[in-house]
Design a protein around this nucleic acid. Sequence first.
RNA 1: GGGCGCAUAGCUCAGUUGGCUAGAGCACCAGCUCGACACGCUGGGGGUCACAGGUUCAAGUCCUGUUGCGCCCACCA
Length: 1112
Amino acid sequence: MDFKSLASQYDHAAAQKRWYPFWESRGYFHAEANDPRPPFTIVIPPPNVTGALHLGHALNNTLQDILIRMKRMQGFNTLWMPGTDHAGIATQAVVERRLFEEEKKTRHDLGREGLVARIWKWKDQYEARILSQLKQMGCSCDWARTQFTFNEHNSRAVREWFFHLFKDGKVYRGKRLVNWDTFLQTAVSDDEVFHEPVKGHFWHFKYPVAAKDRRPGEPEFVTIATTRPETMLGDTAVAVHPDPAAAFDKVGAELREKLLQATVKEKAELEEQMTLLLDRRAKVLPQLEQLRDMAKRGVQLELPLTGRTIPLITDEWAKPELGSGAVKITPAHDANDYEVWQRHPEIGAINILNPDGTLNENVPQQYRGLVVRKAREAVVADMEAAGVLVEVEDREIDLAHSDRSKTPIEPYLADQWFVKMDELAQSAMDAVTSGRVKITPERYAKGYLDWLNEKRDWPIGRQLWWGHRIPVWRVSLNYGGSITADRNTVAETLKRSQEEAPSQLRKYLLAGGLKEEEFAMQLDDEMLYCCILNPLGDQALSAVSQYWNALESAIESRTGSDMASIDEFNLGEFATAAASIPSRKVIFRMDREDDVLDTWFSSALWPHSTLGWPDETPELKKFYPTSVLITSRDIITLWVARMVLAGLYNVGDVPFHEVYITPKILDGYGETMSKSKGNGVDPLDIIEKFGADALRFGLAHLTTDTQDVKLPVDFECPHCGTQFAQTKKNRQLPRIECEKCGKPFSTQWAEKPEDKALPRGAVVSERFELGRNFANKLWNAARFSLINLEGYDASAGSTAPGSAGGFSENDLLLEDRWLLSRLATVTQQVTDTLERYRYADAARTLYDFAWNEFCSFYVEMTKARFSVPDQRQTAQRVLAHGLDVLMRLLHPMMPFLTEEVWQLLGQVAPTRDLPAAVEPVPGPSLKGTGSGAAESICIAPWPAADTARQNATIEQQFADFQAVLGAVREIRQTQNIAQREEITFSVRCDGATADLLRPMQPYFTQMARATATNLGQNAGAPDVAASRTLTGRQGQIEVHVDVSRFIDTKAERKRLEKERDNFLKQIGSIESKLANKNFVEKAPAEVVDQQRAKLDELRGQLASIEAALKRL
RNA sequence: GGGCGCAUAGCUCAGUUGGCUAGAGCACCAGCUCGACACGCUGGGGGUCACAGGUUCAAGUCCUGUUGCGCCCACCA
């Protein structure tokens, strides 16, 4: 191949298109459980199928792929498990919104099955898009194993886990205040709620003391205050503090404590608070104590508008320093009041809301059916009319809104399934404190532990349709075909047959074909719950259900028949028999729970369910526990913690040994990227413009462990190519007009046909220019090498005796030894930093080495050597080897470019190993050594550092050469000597350095168009010279360039004077340091010596600067 | 309210256990069509390391406080 015809710019699109299919077709990404090599496993944090991936995902997945690719090269049996998450509420909300926007339909118009079918379609579409994005980024996932949290297998795993928790008594049913979204009619979790201040009011009401409980001298009313007056209809008590004086004192003491440590500014404010507190105490304490006494006596209050009376109670929740000191208690609609109820069960709870947000039958007739807002108005008006409205204050209220529907949240008491967290949480805490799971960066362990330490039970039900339906059947009693499952009756009946009901049901289930270990039951005060493991789920159940319905009636019609005789019936018969159930007969009725499980319930299983659990697959045995989890910090609690406890519970081992928390990608304003904010960037835009390698390298380069990554982004006009900043204003617009050419283009928000018809403007960031430029630099270094490897002799340098060719250790020149030494160090550094997730360090090390050492020096220097027949082959061998190692080290970050180069290199230089300076240590090593002739760089061995070639002396000698070259170049530039002018220079230095520099003459010519006329201890300066003084390995090096033809005396003097001043300043500072007794005595001897040496050096340099000045 | 971070050049970021004149990329300035690369080469300018104290022979680095910003959690009759 004629390598000269290779394009001078790296064609990323072509490389991507060429190599990804190649890798896939060769099956490099596929892992088998029976592969004997040690495993290295990562499970992907499954992206939500809500939408396409943005740069945050790109970062996360790039970092995973870098590790996976390195480990693959290191010889591990590498598995990267891909997949997506069904993301319950988020996905359903997106699809519902789309449904409404496009067809003006709600989910109720479609029904459960219809809506779920829609969401599946959406899922298919976005899953395909997500997987395609990952492939275009170059991710080397084992695609054949692609998983989905809601596929059949994972559904089975979910049922299995739930069933075992249920059976263990770790799942229970309880009442709980949920954030009720009255629009979507579902509970939403706390993290799906946002708070927004709205203007509201603070109403003060007085509740009369019941006439019968009034005593002279005591208050006739208790005043309470609320921001939600309609909730008074659900009040079940009013509370006052049991010891208001003590409570006041406690608050006072806290204030005093603060005051002690307060700054002047805070003091005034705190003192004012203190005064207010004391005033208040004086004013209200007697009355509060009276109320307290009344409460202890059991006084009742009349609850206005309702005709009910409620008790006055004492509870510490009532803060004497707030409001009136008395607080209304509405357990069904306020979380704190709910807690009060738990402490005072006798007060009860009254739910006043219907799921749609209207008031229900528990409130007086006139309020029923009103929405909260209307009810509030009505209640306030009626309270005023009743003369119990004391006062209305304006107040700003931080009101909870649903993230999905943007409507206000109503706290609502609902039945929920919970997972008991005590032991599970403890196990997950132990895993981290014992070091079995290591979190990097360490600081994130604290949040994990703190959160788990609260051991709050986990509410797992969601009132949604898209998700894993809870595998529990409510067993109620049904009187003769009427399906009213009247709770009280059921409870009563069940209570009566408490012992009997479960055993009865058990018989039926067994008769229905279920095995003993496939179902479990829980009986609470109200209901019998049955959890069924059978993977056929609904289907099996309906058969069972039919079976016992029919069975009951059969038994009824066959007086005296016993259970033993059921075998003679088959299902068909029972189905017909069921039609004739006598109306007075009590039979069981089973209804499946409507709720689905929290998405995290299924994602918690991800590391083991994707490997086959609950089956004991070879994969599970081989790849579990996985090696590392790479994810973002905001799901450490929601996801990571739950995976740990689920893994321990189900498999008996942690799901991963390490967790690496990535930084977050922020936009130019420091805000996190998200689709909803409109600041998300599609990685494909970046890939198209800069290439996948540039994207990946850029992201790795930004990944430091201390900071998030701010990434200002620009729109790129598709008409004229102008880039201009994405701002908070324009980032959500469907169409934007170019700032330069004024022509409009569309954005990701384009919905209307006329907008969509416009050309799409890409969102780009100049941050990725770094990676693109680097890729191009590498490409050209490779191109240069390929062109010049003509005649490369693979056998040259073979250690085999008698081999032909010009390579032998003795032929290695200084620059060869330098490069090999550096290569060993860089290999060590890159390996080490990547193992420790220090991606940016690895990227920077490679960037600096490749650009400033390999290209700027080694490659440059080979130019002079290729024309020297004696040197050509050695230079080719070392160049090819250097490029080979560099490509392998870069491959995890830049897979496409490195493969492209690898393949081309293979054409001209099929093997590129150099004999190791020392024999590698024998024994099983995972790290590769030579590249061999791997057919793809994906599976080429990871470079091993040939540490025997590390040589500090060589590196220092080379540094001296670099310094001299730099001095000559600098003089050229500062003297304004044209590039094409040949110049001469002399170097005064020790003999060893002169010997070193003498053979470098071709490089001075090559790289600085300069000829050394005199080298050595006695080398004098030309008459008219510009000079630099350097500190070499063996002493001072003076570089004098003959500038007689060019001298700009004024400029040179100015420069030298500036430099002299600089030196004087430094010398002064070191002198004073050394004059300081404390420093000399206390600082370590080596630091002092270092300073003394430095001083000598500086003085020497100063002297030569002064000499140069004199000469001018 | 509790917790965790961050603040270094115009911009985006490095700066490992305190120790040479604090670095990089982009942007900026000057000069370069020399056969790998103008997505390049050579050289240059640019920083009171947010502020105030403290520890130390020595502080960008450690401690305390202040200010500003971000995130997480809790709470708000």
